[in-house]
Amino acid sequence: MKRIGILGGTFDPLHQGHMIIAEHVYEALKLDEIWFIPSHLPPHKQEATVSSEDRLQMVKEAIKGNPHFHVSAIEIEREGKSYTIDTIKHLKGAYPEHKFCFIIGGDMVQYLPQWHRIDELRQLVQFVGVGRKEITGKDLNEDVQMVEIPRVDISSSIIRDRLSHDQSIRYLVPESVFEYVKEKSLYEPKSE
Rank of each mutant, 00 (worst) to 15 (best):
F102R: 02
K92C: 08
D139L: 06
L91C: 05
V144M: 02
A73F: 11
G105K: 00
E142K: 13
K45F: 06
E97Y: 10
R122Q: 14
H98A: 10
K99H: 12
Y95S: 02
M108K: 02
D54G: 02
G80M: 11
V144T: 01
Q114Y: 10
S156R: 06
S157H: 09
K89A: 06
V128I: 14
K81S: 14
Y83C: 12
K45W: 05
V128E: 01
V71M: 09
A73T: 12
V109T: 02
H116V: 03
V144I: 01
K60I: 09
P67M: 05
R117H: 15
K99E: 13
V128T: 04
E142D: 15
W115H: 03
I74M: 15
E75K: 08
L163Y: 08
V152P: 01
L41P: 08
R122S: 10
I76D: 06
A62R: 09
Y83I: 09
Q123W: 03
I149V: 13
L56I: 03
G65S: 09
N141K: 07
R132P: 03
G106Y: 01
I149Y: 02
D143F: 03
V71W: 09
Q126L: 05
G80R: 12
I118A: 01
P42W: 07
K45P: 05
P113K: 04
I63R: 06
P67A: 12
D86N: 14
F102H: 04
I149L: 02
H116P: 03
L124I: 03
E77P: 08
L41C: 12
Q46Y: 06
H70G: 11
E61W: 11
L124Q: 13
S51R: 08
H98K: 07
V144H: 00
I85D: 07
F127A: 02
I103S: 00
E47I: 11
W115F: 13
Y111N: 14
N141C: 10
L140S: 04
D143L: 01
S51I: 04
D119Y: 10
P42A: 15
I63V: 11
K99N: 09
E61Q: 13
R160N: 09
V128Y: 03
R162P: 04
I149F: 02
I118V: 13
F102N: 04
A62L: 09
N141R: 08
S82R: 10
S155P: 05
G131W: 00
Y95E: 07
Q126G: 00
Q126I: 01
R151F: 12
I154S: 05
R132C: 04
S52W: 13
K81V: 15
I104V: 10
T87L: 07
L124Y: 04
A48W: 04
G131F: 00
Y111G: 05
Y95N: 06
E148P: 00
A73Q: 15
S51D: 07
I135L: 14
L124V: 03
Y95V: 04
R160G: 06
